[in-house]
Design a binder for these strands. Structure first.
Lengths: 342, 342
DNA sequence: TTGTACGCGTTATCAT
DNA sequence: ATGATAACGCGTACAA
C-alpha cells in the first residue's frame, strides 16, 4: 500500500503538498494538483484514515447505541436507524453500531472509543451507557429523556410522550371507551415513565378509576415473556380475569400483532369487540394488516435526522443555534382498528 | 486527556510497560500492574484507540454494507444485522454501517476505509461495492452470490436459492396449484437470478407452461413503484388481466403484506381463493397475521453469524479450516396461508 | 523492564 | 501565494 512519501517522491513535491492536495486545507496550484493526483492513481494511493485521525482527532464516525441487547428491532428502531445513517452520511460521517451494556466491558481491554460523538437510543433510568459517555467526555445526544442521577443538562431529541398518551386516551374516551388497557414500554425505560404519567392524568381528568389491570409494562429483554408481550396480557386480562376492556393501546407494532393474535384466540374481533391503538409501527404493516391499524406516528426517521443534526452541532460541524431539547411532532393516523361504543 | 507518558512517569515505569499492562501482550509483574492501573484510574487514562490502530493496523471494526440506499429493511435485513452485531461483538469487533453507493464518493476526499474487513449484503450483478472492496484489498465476505466480471473466488455465505424456490414450487404444485405467480427480488440482485432459475426449472420439471405474468421483479429502490410492489402486480394480474393465479410466492414480508392487501381489495381470500407463500419474514408477523403465513425460513440471523465467523477467519482471528462458501439451511414453515386445490 | 525507532499523515513555520 | 521542512500525535514492538 502506497504511502504519502511515495507519492511525494514520484510527484517531486513534499509530503505536505500531497497532504494539501487531498485534504484541500490549503490551495495548491492546478499543475501540482494534477501531478499528485496522477501519481496517486498510479500508486493506488489514498490517505490513511487512521493516521489522519491521529492528528486531526476526528474519526468521522458516530456511535449509535441501541437498547441493551435488544435483538429485535421494531419498526421504530428500523426507521430511526435509517434516518440516522442517511443524515450522518450527508455530513460525511459513518455510523458505528454499538451495544455497550450487553456484556460488561473488561477494564484492561478498554480503550478510548474511536468515535467523535454518539447517539443514545431509548435511555433507561440511570442508564449506564450515559454515565460512560459522560465520564468519557464523548459528546452525545439521546433520543428520549435522560433520568440519571447527577446528570442534568443533556441534549435530547424526543417525542412529547406524556401528551402522546394523553391524546390517545382522549381519542379513545371520546369514542366512548372507559375501560382502556395500556401496554407500556419496559418499566426501566424513561419513556415509560412519561407515558404512564400521561395515562394516569387522562384517567384522572376524565374521572375514570384507575385499576391495576389497565397498565402493563413490557418484560425485560431476554426474559422468557418478552416475545409474548401483548399476547399473554390480553389473554389473561380479557380472558381469565374477565375484565371488560374495550380498548387496548400497544407500545409498538410487534406488541400490537401479539394483541391481535390474542384477540383472535379469544374469539373476539377488532374493532367490533376491542379497539386497538398502536404507538408507531411499520407503515405498510399498519396499513395492510386486517383491519388496518389506527396509530400514533412518532416520525422515527425524523427523530433520527434531528438527533444527528443536534450531534453535528455539538461537534461544531453544523453552525447556528440549537436548543438543548428538540421535540418532534407526532400525530394520530386514523385507520380502522378503533370504533365508537355507545 | 492523559496519555501513556503521563502514566509512565507517575508510575515510574517506561511507556512500554504501561502499554503491556493494557494490551496484555507480555506479562508484567503484579506489583507493576497494580501501580500502573492505579495511576491510570487517577488520571482517567485509557489507551488511544487510534494510535493503537496506527501501529497494529487493526481497527477492530468491520463494515456492513447494506443494499444500495435501501431505506427500508425487511425482517430479513433486521435479523441478519442482529446476527452480525452479536457475533462481531463476541470477537471484540464493532460494526460500521455502510452505504457506499448511495452517492458517488468525491475522489479528493476519499480516504482508506478504517475497517479491517467487510460484509457485503445482497450483492447485485457487477456490484460496484465489491469492486471497491476488491481493489481496496479489504477482506470481505458476501451474503449472496457474487456475479462480477473478473472476480472469481470470493468468500460467501448464502442460502441455496435455486433449491429454495424449487422446493416452494414443488410444495405448491403438490397441493394442486399449477398457476403460480412469483414476486421475485430486484432483477439486478444476484439472488433473483438463482431464484428465477429455480422457478423455471420447477415449471419445466412439472410440465407447466411458463407465462409472462408468472414472474415479476421488484422495482428499483427509490422508484415510485417500489413501495407498492406486490399490490400493483396482484391487482393487475388477478384483476385487470384476469389471470387465474391460485398461488403467489412473495419475496419478503413487506411484499407479502402488499399482496394480502391487494387480495382483500379484490374481494378474494387467503387461502381459500389464493394461497400465499412468503420467503422469510418477521416471525411474529408471519404467525400473527390473519391468516398466519406459510413461509420459507432463511435463518437470517444464522447467515449473519456465519458471515462474521468467515470474516474472522479471513482476518486470522478464528483459526481452522473454512470452505470458500457456506450454505445456511432454510426450511419451510407450514402455517395457514396455503391450501390444497382439487 | 527500558529505551527508542518506528507508523503515517497533518500542520505550523519558514523560504521562495 | 505556493512549496519545503520538521515537529508532532500516541501508542507498539524490538533490541538491549
Amino acid at each position: 500500500m502506497a504511502k504519502i512519501d511515495d507519492v511525494a517522491r514520484l510527484a517531486k513535491v513534499s509530503k505536505g503538498t500531497v497532504s494539501n492536495v487531498f485534504s484541500q486545507k490549503r490551495r495548491t496550484s492546478q499543475e501540482v494538483t494534477d501531478r499528485v493526483m496522477k501519481v496517486s492513481r498510479q500508486l493506488n494511493y489514498v490517505p490513511n484514515h487512521i493516521a489522519r485521525s491521529l492528528v486531526t482527532k476526528k474519526t468521522m464516525a458516530i456511535g449509535l447505541t441501541i437498547p441493551h441487547g435488544n435483538f429485535f428491532f421494531s419498526a421504530f428502531h428500523n426507521q430511526f436507524i435509517n434516518g440516522v445513517i442517511l443524515e450522518a452520511a450527508y455530513y460525511g460521517y459513518r455510523v458505528l453500531l454499538d451495544m455497550i451494556p450487553v456484556q460488561k466491558v473488561k477494564t484492561p481491554f478498554l480503550s478510548s472509543y474511536p468515535i467523535d460523538g454518539a447517539i443514545v437510543m431509548s435511555p433507561a433510568i440511570d442508564d449506564e451507557r450515559i454515565n460512560l459517555m459522560h465520564q468519557g467526555q464523548i459528546p452525545f445526544v439521546t433520543v428520549g429523556r435522560v433520568m440519571n442521577a447527577n446528570i442534568n443538562h443533556t441534549s435530547s431529541v424526543d417525542s412529547d410522550n406524556l401528551m402522546i398518551i394523553y391524546s390517545i386516551c382522549k381519542y379513545l374516551i371520546d369514542k366512548g371507551h372507559r375501560n382502556i388497557m395500556f401496554l407500556n414500554a419496559n418499566e426501566l425505560m424513561t419513556v415509560s415513565i412519561d407515558r404512564k404519567a400521561g395515562f394516569i392524568k387522562a384517567m384522572e381528568d376524565y374521572h375514570i378509576e384507575l385499576e391495576e389491570h389497565m397498565i402493563h409494562h413490557k418484560p425485560a429483554i431476554l426474559s422468557s415473556e418478552y416475545m409474548d408481550y401483548g399476547y399473554e396480557e390480553t389473554i389473561r386480562t380479557l380472558g381469565k380475569f374477565e375484565k371488560k376492556v374495550t380498548a387496548i393501546i400497544a407500545d409498538d407494532d410487534r406488541t400490537a400483532f401479539s394483541v391481535m393474535n390474542a384477540i383472535k384466540d379469544l374469539e373476539l374481533r377488532v374493532p367490533e369487540d376491542v379497539s386497538l391503538f398502536v404507538i408507531c409501527g411499520d407503515l405498510s404493516m399498519m396499513y395492510q394488516s386486517n383491519p388496518s391499524l389506527t396509530s400514533m406516528d412518532l416520525q422515527p426517521s425524523e427523530l433520527g435526522v434531528q438527533a444527528v443534526k443536534m450531534l453535528m452541532h455539538k461537534l461544531d460541524v453544523l453552525p447556528g443555534y440549537f436548543p438543548e431539547n428538540i421535540w418532534v411532532e407526532s400525530k394520530i393516523i386514523e385507520r380502522d382498528s378503533c370504533s365508537s361504543i355507545s
